[in-house]
Amino acid sequence: MRWSAASAGPNFVYRGQPLGCPFAFWLVVQKTGLDDGRKALVLNKIQQYFHGRRHLHRTPEGRLVIALRAQRIDCVVDVGANIGQTGLALFKHGFDGKVLSFEPTSQAYKELRETARAWPNWSVAPQMALGTAERQVEINLAVTSNWSSIKKVRDKTVGMKPKSRIVGQETIDLKRLDQEVPKSVDPNDRLFVKIDTQGYEADVLEGCDGLLPSIFGFKLELSLLALYEGEKLYDYYLRWMADRGFELWMVEDVSFSSELGRQLQFDAVFFRPGGLS
């Protein structure tokens, strides 16, 4: 008998995350004797079969996975990983490369490590932020951790987004990306760097110089309106990328202000044109 997605039963939820895998197949995988990480990997492959690559273009994460495959990216470097949203979304949408995550804040870092533990291709670097030089800095902790930043949030931003309000600070280590990433990746890996550091993206990019020949793409969260003090806006990054031979590849919406009636941020994906030649 051939199982179908319609007849196999409800989707399985693993560690609180729906994997889109029919229950009957989950039951078979549980009897294989594999460890939890390997089971999650097998279930992810089954999900890919049922979900179908033809549907990937319908979500931002799916479109990114299509682009990563087309560019033959071996490893996604996830800077500002928070609790692991990016890595989890990539694997759930069928990315079969590696993910290396960096996160500076203690509570988010603990959750990130727990999330990544289930995926064999997902590694988490020691707790740190990435920037221009090796030193210690203070990071501002927000009500919601994904708003935490080394930059100070503007009062206007808090008015629009109350969860960005600062509730504390934490001393963290700051290091350079081009010094830390080579410790965890293969020298021949084609790298893609995702940076979501709440206004601190320019400093992270300055720390990439020594690794640029191995980086074939970037994803940045860019602002149309400065949400943090001293934050550079989208046009700075468009010039930075163009000057280094990267082309704007995709744009996805991030946040909109009903109060202002305008878009605040968007995700921009860049690749080197002809990067596969």
Score class of each variant (00 low, 15 high):
residue 123 S to M: 09
residue 150 I to E: 01
residue 64 L to K: 07
residue 238 L to F: 11
residue 274 G to C: 05
residue 63 R to A: 10
residue 214 S to G: 00
residue 277 S to E: 13
residue 104 P to S: 02
residue 166 I to C: 09
residue 131 G to D: 06
residue 230 G to C: 10
residue 254 V to A: 15
residue 17 Q to I: 15
residue 69 R to V: 03
residue 64 L to W: 06
residue 261 G to K: 12
residue 192 F to A: 13
residue 201 E to I: 05
residue 143 V to D: 04
residue 254 V to D: 14
residue 225 L to R: 10
residue 149 S to P: 01
residue 78 D to I: 06
residue 105 T to S: 10
residue 140 N to L: 00
residue 174 L to K: 12
residue 2 R to D: 11
residue 72 R to S: 14
residue 36 D to E: 15
residue 18 P to I: 08
residue 67 A to G: 00
residue 171 T to I: 08
residue 265 Q to A: 10
residue 147 W to Q: 14
residue 33 G to H: 07
residue 105 T to P: 00
residue 216 F to N: 00
residue 182 P to A: 08
residue 274 G to H: 05
residue 47 Q to E: 13
residue 120 P to R: 01
residue 260 L to E: 14
residue 183 K to V: 06
residue 182 P to G: 09
residue 181 V to W: 03
residue 39 K to D: 10
residue 178 D to Q: 07
residue 51 H to E: 08
residue 161 K to H: 13
residue 219 K to H: 14
residue 104 P to Y: 04
residue 248 L to P: 10
residue 237 Y to Q: 07
residue 231 E to N: 05
residue 150 I to P: 01
residue 173 D to E: 12
residue 63 R to F: 02
residue 237 Y to P: 02
residue 165 R to K: 15
residue 268 A to D: 05
residue 177 L to P: 01
residue 191 L to F: 13
residue 222 L to D: 01
residue 168 G to V: 03
residue 107 Q to I: 01
residue 134 E to S: 10
residue 264 L to P: 08
residue 151 K to I: 00
residue 172 I to P: 01
residue 207 G to D: 09
residue 167 V to T: 14
residue 118 A to F: 07
residue 45 K to V: 10
residue 90 L to W: 14
residue 199 G to N: 07
residue 261 G to S: 10
residue 143 V to T: 13
residue 247 E to N: 03
residue 99 V to S: 03
residue 228 Y to P: 00
residue 151 K to R: 15
residue 104 P to A: 05
